[in-house]
Amino acid sequence: MGKGCNFMKGKQVIAGAKTALSPSGIVLMIAFFAFGALVRSVDFPLSVGVGLTLFTFAIPSQIVLVDELSRGASIFTAVIATTLTAVRLFPLTMSLMPTLREPSTPKWQQYGLSHFNAITVWIQSMNSLPALERGDRISFYLGHCCMMMCLTVGTTILGYYSAQHLSLTYLAGALMITPIYFFLSLFAGSKTFCDRLAFLFGTLFAIPMMIFFPDLAILGAGFLGGTLAYVLGRAKSKVSDE
């Protein structure tokens, strides 16, 4: 990607890279550590772990894929399960791009930039980017993402080699980091009325959806909860405008 980025600003790249060492970055590193350990514990080679971290870079999808394949699921079932957990990348990317790109950013660069986008990067970007000049955002973002990727590849490897020394309980603890982190940082990032409702409805709707339509739980709860939150949020802002 380097060639197209002759507009990169060193200072912003470094500022972005530094945010990779924020609490959220550290938490993500531990989550990839747990993923590395998972790969080892199901007897897959290290190359699968590192390859998936580099080319997928979406921790819940990686966990689901490795988990399904190791349980002997067919390739078809494994891919369906993985792709269902990855649907969220669509709204995440669709809402990130207008904040991230410049009017002159070519399409191919936008496709390249989107590879790094997943929950942690999205939350971090939505918190930091709007405060920056538009011309600084891509540099900051790339600095953040590249640093993140190096560190998470490192912890994937570390997790792989530590797995045999960890008991199941500690391994579970490392995997527990992902949901706690997503929950807290989403909570912190939900500043508008709409976002808070979406957070609440997504949580509440997921439980009945999981009981009745387990395969579509995330999709259904996300879509229904998000839609209801948006409609109510709009209604409230109209009332307060009048």
Partner: peptide, 22 residues
């Protein structure tokens, strides 16, 4: 963006109630 937020919340609930691996 609102849908993305609800998606993440729902994903957390599933990771808690129907987790995988260790």
């Amino acid at each position: 963006r609102t849908i993305a937020t609800a998606f993440i919340a729902a994903l957390v609930v599933r990771l808690i109630f129907l987790p995988s691996g260790a």
